[in-house]
Design a protein around this nucleic acid. Structure first.
Lengths: 331, 331
DNA sequence: AACTCTCTTGCTACCGGGTGCAAAATAGTT
DNA sequence: AACTATTTTGCACCCGGTAGCAAGAGAGTT
């Protein structure tokens, strides 16, 4: 194994005690300019730098935040991860990225993060089952947890989410104003509360406009092929005059898959034959090829809020933040 | 701060010494079935689980691997991160994701990772400057480093990359066989060695076919708008009869940006007017809207190799692995 | 010069485990 | 029963820091 210089070695070389060395590296500690300079010089010569592991053990805070992700297929994760790493790092925290896809047992992942003494756990997944958490006797020594970008029904586990009610209201208002009359909704994994909520609000606001008949489509997972398969099923089973004139997809990936299928395989036009709306404002949806109307989650603001909760600057409680409707050609 | 049970507490409760408790949690340690059972029972009752931080401090290995990423705009990163987290976790390692975009000083990030005693550092970025590393007196206590998915010229820092020579040979062979005669190449950030290499091989293999005149386009960064801007400049400056008939873009993002611009703004056809080739096989490039011919890096194999090097199962040395040409409609 | 008061410095104890050795307990042998 | 070999267990010390207190060193006052 590698060997680094320790405070003790620097102390001997500089002719002081190891505590003086440590004080030289502790901002605001009581130490003379003279000895501080001396210590820092010998430290630089010996290539010494404090061992954060030892510090963590002594202070009982690691500065590490575990971020759980289970769905790497959604490109939306990447800008979120960028924002998370950037903001957490700026606050002196570091991200431990934990993959909890099916190969990995969720409970074990949680216990593992706990064993590593992380300061907080961010559940940034869409398919994390609530029961997994309730099984774990939360509060009993587990680090504080936060759910990012999805709902949480769990007592003591606050969520930071985009305001689904506002989002769907804006979307439905827009579609209604555009004159669409036969809406449909494509879900990705209906069991999830976040997914359900979007669909419910969609139905609710259309009902306010007097439209109660909403076609429901289901994709097996959040992927373009799944979206394509779902719309393929729908189009082949539904006569042209009975089809929706606008389809809202639960996220952009589904929307893109659906759009490809509609135009490529069925030769229909978007938005003339079927208009499409997505969710998430995934970067490529804005390209010329798609021009997807979508809704953008307030990523940076959401991460800011989670960070403040972790840092204890605001009370941990579920918070919804307003996003932004992005109108393009597809609807 | 939270309180967890410690080995000492479990020892008292079970009526043994703390070392016996530790042995119960150490596979292969010398301990009777009887006392092991007794310890594990009381441990379960007290909700005890070993503190990995303390263990790391004592054993001088953390099981943490820092992964440096600087460009979150490239969706290609996500499947790589998935593969990395999955395979490293399966090997008992955990990923510390470190964002080294411009807000963050690279040297500091390295020192920080070092201070956290990570077992290895994976540079999974495209714009990491070699000088940053050479400045750091490598080997002098720094954790072993590996460069993933780009070249490394640094002594002692091996790279695991997709075989660029083979890739470009396959691509050029394919394009030549298809009858293209006036090739062009769009670079993203020409200063990088990986980027240069792709361009050089592209030129080299065309030269073997007797084509020495390669149009060179430059995009300011690896993004769709940058690719679009680059091709826009080229098309508006170049008369129709002088234009390339096939354009190879350094990665799929540039290719998609270029394709959008060619079709959307200039009304030209792909591949009839200009054929397009990308690199990386970014998922959406395969959609109906793009049908991008591209080249796929052997992600899983690359990660496997890095993992083996980290684990010391194979000698750390630069390794190139063959990828796979993916032919679609765009070329 | 004696005496405070304040700033530095060193020390003990501790964070929660791991290592290697010696003592204790058990098993095996004659 | 005495003795040896082997397994278990306990112990001192270590990993590299931090916390808080007490002793030491200066500076200021009378």
């Amino acid at each position: 194994m590698r060997k680094r210089a320790t405070a003790k070695q620097v102390a001997e070389a500089a002719g002081v005690s190891k505590w003086t060395v440590i004080r030289a590296f502790t901002p605001g500690a009581s130490i003379t300019e003279e000895s501080k300079r001396k210590v820092l010089e010998t430290a630089a010569a010996l290539n010494y730098t404090p061992n954060l592991l030892a510090r963590s053990l002594a202070t009982n805070t690691t500065g590490q935040v575990a971020v759980f992700v289970d769905d790497f297929a959604n490109p939306q994760k990447l800008p979120f991860l960028e924002s998370l790493t950037e903001k957490l790092q700026a606050a002196g925290l570091v991200v431990m990225l934990i993959n909890i896809n099916n190969h990995f047992d969720h409970v074990n992942a949680l216990l593992h993060a706990d064993q590593r003494q992380v300061d907080a756990i961010i559940l940034f997944g869409t398919a994390f089952r609530d029961e997994t958490l309730t099984d774990l006797q939360l509060g009993n020594g587990m680090p504080p947890m936060f759910v990012l970008a999805r709902d949480s029904q769990i007592e003591g586990v606050p969520a930071v989410v985009c305001d689904a009610e506002l989002a769907l209201r804006e979307i439905v208002d827009h579609l209604h104003a555009k004159g669409y009359k036969r809406p449909g909704f494509m879900s990705g994994a209906a069991a999830l509360s976040t997914a359900l909520r979007r669909r419910q609000h969609f139905a609710e606001f259309w009902a306010e406009k007097g439209v109660t008949d909403i076609a429901l489509l289901f994709a097996e997972k959040y992927s373009a092929p799944a979206g394509a398969a779902s719309i393929r099923r729908y189009l082949s089973e539904t006569a042209a005059q009975d089809r929706v004139d606008v389809l809202m997809c639960e996220n952009d990936i589904l929307a893109i898959g659906a759009m490809d299928e509609i135009r490529g395989k069925f030769g229909l036009r978007v938005p003339e034959d079927i208009a499409i709306v997505g969710f998430d404002n995934y970067e490529l949806g804005g390209s010329f090829a798609y021009g997807l109307t979508t809704y953008e989650q307030p990523r940076n603001e959401m991460v800011d809020v989670v960070l403040k909760m972790i840092k204890g600057k605001i009370e941990p409680e579920t918070i919804t933040l307003p996003g932004r409707l992005i109108v393009r050609r597809s609807a």
